[in-house]
């Protein structure tokens, strides 16, 4: 169910757009901040609140990268696989990350701490290769640097 706080935030967005569907991406983002992902049931709740059909809303949700329709780990590791990072050694880095985390792209670690996904160019091409973890950008990445970063997240868990 949508909490009152969520409803209030979504209403503000609807008001800003002057149109309920116009606020649907913000509505999903608002709900996802709280739930971490959007289940079928919650998709229906949001759709009803916006006066859209669940199928229509899911059509929107499934189009975008940062809307999760399956449970994800506590931290999202987004790996830039675009051309500058590729030139600067993305493939070797990915091999290392896959080994270190024990998951491939799209996978979630058994402890539920990390989900690793591909992402398009992060706009840090002069400091490639780059990844983002949640809202933080990491650049000039090496396998050693990645290990240190991951260790910090593990310690913080």
């Amino acid at each position: 169910m949508l909490t009152d706080d969520m409803k209030k935030k979504i209403e503000e967005e609807c008001h800003r757009c002057g149109n309920r569907q116009g606020a649907c991406i913000e509505a999903i983002q608002t709900a996802q901040t709280f739930w971490g992902w959007i289940s079928d049931e919650n998709m229906e709740h949001i759709a009803r609140f916006l006066g859209m059909s669940p199928a229509e809303l899911d059509g929107v949700a499934s189009f975008y990268n940062h809307i999760y329709r399956k449970p994800v780990g506590k931290h999202i590791v987004m790996v830039c696989d675009s051309v500058s990072c590729w030139v600067m050694g993305y493939e070797k880095l990915l091999d290392h990350m896959t080994q270190r985390l024990g998951i491939g792209l799209g996978g979630t670690t058994a402890d539920g701490l990390f989900t690793m996904v591909p992402i398009q160019c992060l706009g840090a091409c002069d400091k490639a290769p780059a990844i983002m973890i949640d809202e933080k950008l990491y650049t000039d990445l090496t396998p050693e640097k990645f290990d240190r970063i991951i260790e910090k997240y593990r310690e913080g868990a």
Partner: peptide, 11 residues
Amino acid sequence: DEMEPGTFKDR
């Protein structure tokens, strides 16, 4: 919405 691979000027 700067997303062209290789581009980071607007950021």
